[in-house]
Simulated assay, not measured.
Amino acid sequence: MAEVKLFGARVSPFSCRIEVALKLKGVEYEFIDEDLHKKSPLLLKYNPVHKKVPVLVHNGKPICESLVILEYIDETWEEGPSLLPKDPYERAMVRFWAKFLDEKCLPPMWKACWSIGEEQEKAKEESTELLKFLEGKFSGKKFFGGDNIGMVDIVANFISYWFIIVQELVGLQVLTKEKFPKLGEWIDEYLNSDIIKENFPPRDKLTAIFQARFEAAAAAGGGGGGGSGGGASK
């Protein structure tokens, strides 16, 4: 039997991506919960370049970076639903939107949460414009790729959960059902999926973590703590 280990952090949206994918595929694995403030020697050994979670170790061989790991899982384990479509063009589109989420959406959305003043306003405007592209992706579909959870849905988990929690804490009105009804429907559908409910960290735990970071930042006189769901993750 193949040995599968996942070095991650329970509060990280990037680690949760991998857990969701493994559960969808029915892959048994061992989870190693990393302290991101004091990373283990094994994590640093397996990911010496970025020194971040998640890292999937399959039969002793490490795979780093969540987007890369998701494709590896889909190609290695044929059991369970496919995370990416078979058609080359459709696969390319999935890769495009996954990168769009990580490289275009994530930075301004977190900046909108953790910054103040003019910088926050600019980040809110940018986030709203980017979310309009995602809103336009839905046309009679439950998920980004159709009727089943796929790679883009998994990559977008920070939107459905982490961002919603933080924007409520800071009183933002960036992603609301009034502004983005289709995204709102997707969030409800996604979060009510059994596989998602079982693997996302408890809402009260994340809320407490972010609240503590806001209070620490305020005490230090800053505008926020930055980071994405626990820091040092991708």
Rank of each mutant, 00 (worst) to 15 (best):
E118I: 09
L84T: 07
P107F: 06
C113K: 01
P85G: 00
P85K: 02
W110R: 02
C105K: 01
K111H: 11
K99V: 09
W110V: 11
L83H: 03
I63R: 03
V68S: 14
W97G: 02
L84M: 13
H58E: 05
L101H: 05
E65N: 08
R91T: 03
L67D: 09
A112S: 15
E119H: 08
G60W: 14
E65M: 08
E118L: 13
Y89S: 00
P88A: 12
V94C: 12
H58I: 04
Y72I: 05
R95M: 07
S66E: 00
L84H: 03
V68M: 11
R95C: 08
A123I: 06
A92V: 04
P107W: 03
W77E: 03
W77H: 08
P62H: 07
E78F: 09
E79I: 01
H58P: 07
E78Q: 15
W97T: 07
A123D: 12
P108V: 07
A98G: 07
H58D: 06
V68T: 15
K111F: 05
K99F: 10
Y89P: 00
F100Q: 10
E79M: 06
C64I: 14
C113T: 07
L101D: 04
A98N: 13
A98Q: 09
K111T: 14
H58N: 08
K104V: 12
P107Q: 08
E71F: 06
E75Y: 10
S115P: 00
V94E: 02
L70H: 09
K61Q: 15
H58W: 11
C113N: 13
D102F: 07
E75Q: 15
Y72S: 05
A123R: 04
N59G: 15
R95Q: 12
V94N: 00
L84A: 09
C64N: 10
P85Q: 01
V94L: 02
F96A: 02
M109H: 06
P62F: 04
D87Q: 04
G117Y: 12
E79C: 10
W97K: 12
W114S: 06
A123M: 09
V68C: 13
S115N: 08
E118T: 14
L83N: 03
W110S: 03
E103Y: 10
P88L: 07
R91Q: 04
P108R: 07
W97D: 02
K86E: 13
E90P: 00
K104E: 15
W110M: 14
T76R: 03
K99P: 00
I63E: 00
E103C: 09
V57M: 08
L70C: 10
D102L: 06
V94D: 03
W77D: 04
F96C: 03
L67R: 11
V68P: 01
D102R: 04
K124F: 05
G60V: 10
S82G: 13
K61G: 02
E75A: 14
L83A: 03
P85C: 00
A123H: 08
P88H: 12
